[in-house]
Simulated assay, not measured.
Amino acid sequence: MPDEHRPYRPHQPPPRRSRLTRRGRLVLLLGALLGIGFVALVIGPLLPEEEPPEKPRQLLIPEGWRAAQVYAAVDRELRLPAGTTKAAVATAALDLPAEAKGNPEGYLFPATYPVTKESTPASLLSFMVRTAHRKLATKAVADGAKAHGMTPYQTATLASVIEAEADNPADMGKVSRVVHNRLAKSMPLQMDSTINYALGRTTVDTTLGDTRIDHPFNTYARQGLPPTPIDSPGLRAMAAAVAPTPGDWLFFVTVKPGDTRFSATYEEHRKHVAEFNRLRAAAGPPAKAPAAK
């Protein structure tokens, strides 16, 4: 029933919504796109550009390199003045054994390391030392060192001598055996590599005068292992240090590349040294006889 108190209003149809034509929709869409493009044009240059990810350079540290060679390589790779990396050792807080007394020789593990714009001498040296611990400070090495009455640091020192003396990896076990046999008999090691380290050189010739130098690394004049490693040994040299090839050898000489002769007696060794001298003389200037090993 109609409310007699409500004023009468004639019936009105609901308002009709305006509808865009197809052309109108296209105009609006075009305007929106142009507006977005304008904003991007204005704001785009104000936003910082993202740099593409840096591709690391590669620094190769070969097996058998001395610390001095590693320092020089890092200086070159980082384009730093010569001597910068060596000086950084003092403040790099490297995780070295107490026996090393801060000297990283033997613990700059041979491998390929990534180098970026963030790399520093300290960061690279620390990376190398951490790698050495991960690769060499294993239970097998510790157990092998203990079995031979050595500390892991002494084993690294022995491995560095093996790395320097062996003509090829196949001879490392025999070189290790010569060192172990000499140590067991309290014989001086008589390793040319330790004298070369003392004199900062690399040569296959050792003179009688060389064997008489007064130096901690002269293993002709002093018994036992050298006081520190003499290079960066690799995994094969370390394995040979703790697991030498069985044998009674006390001497060896590399007569020619790929031909290292191992001897149990000095008489046999002298014959091999004579063969070395003959081949060297035939190849060029007269060679100095290598000292007995």
Results as ranks from 00 to 15, higher is better:
residue 167 D to I: 13
residue 207 T to R: 12
residue 275 E to Q: 08
residue 175 V to H: 00
residue 245 T to L: 09
residue 225 L to T: 01
residue 275 E to A: 13
residue 160 S to F: 11
residue 209 G to N: 14
residue 151 T to S: 12
residue 221 A to K: 04
residue 194 T to R: 02
residue 270 R to Q: 14
residue 219 T to K: 01
residue 200 G to M: 06
residue 232 S to K: 08
residue 248 D to W: 06
residue 183 L to P: 00
residue 156 A to Y: 12
residue 162 I to Y: 04
residue 195 I to Y: 02
residue 261 R to M: 08
residue 203 T to C: 12
residue 152 P to R: 00
residue 175 V to N: 02
residue 208 L to P: 05
residue 203 T to S: 13
residue 211 T to H: 00
residue 170 A to P: 04
residue 205 D to R: 14
residue 168 N to F: 15
residue 204 V to N: 10
residue 233 P to Q: 05
residue 194 T to C: 13
residue 260 T to C: 03
residue 192 D to H: 04
residue 251 F to Q: 04
residue 179 V to P: 01
residue 169 P to C: 13
residue 206 T to P: 11
residue 244 P to G: 03
residue 275 E to P: 12
residue 169 P to I: 11
residue 184 A to R: 06
residue 235 L to I: 08
residue 249 W to L: 06
residue 222 R to G: 09
residue 208 L to H: 07
residue 258 G to A: 08
residue 166 A to T: 10
residue 269 H to S: 06
residue 245 T to Y: 10
residue 223 Q to K: 11
residue 198 A to F: 04
residue 237 A to Q: 09
residue 220 Y to G: 01
residue 178 V to K: 00
residue 268 E to S: 08
residue 256 K to S: 14
residue 153 Y to T: 02
residue 255 V to E: 05
residue 210 D to E: 07
residue 152 P to I: 06
residue 170 A to R: 15
residue 215 H to T: 07
residue 179 V to R: 02
residue 191 M to I: 12
residue 214 D to E: 13
residue 229 P to A: 13
residue 212 R to H: 14
residue 227 P to M: 10
residue 212 R to S: 07
residue 183 L to R: 00
residue 239 A to R: 07
residue 227 P to Y: 05
residue 263 S to D: 10
residue 158 L to D: 07
residue 183 L to N: 03
residue 226 P to Y: 10
residue 268 E to T: 09
residue 234 G to Q: 12
residue 235 L to V: 13
residue 242 V to A: 13
residue 239 A to D: 11
residue 268 E to C: 06
residue 182 R to W: 02
residue 205 D to I: 13
residue 191 M to S: 04
residue 192 D to G: 09
residue 166 A to R: 01
residue 152 P to Q: 02
residue 228 T to M: 11
residue 222 R to P: 04
residue 213 I to A: 04
residue 238 M to S: 10
residue 233 P to Y: 03
residue 186 S to T: 10
residue 266 Y to F: 10
residue 198 A to I: 03
residue 268 E to V: 10
residue 263 S to P: 11
residue 174 K to V: 09
residue 179 V to S: 01
residue 235 L to F: 10
residue 179 V to T: 01
residue 263 S to R: 00
residue 226 P to M: 07
residue 173 G to W: 03
residue 174 K to E: 05
residue 158 L to P: 14
residue 238 M to L: 15
residue 185 K to M: 09
residue 231 D to S: 14
residue 202 T to Q: 13
residue 237 A to D: 10
residue 214 D to L: 08
residue 264 A to K: 06
residue 234 G to R: 01
residue 246 P to Q: 12
residue 241 A to R: 03
residue 253 V to K: 01
residue 237 A to E: 10
residue 162 I to P: 00
residue 259 D to V: 15
residue 254 T to E: 05
residue 158 L to W: 09
residue 166 A to Y: 08
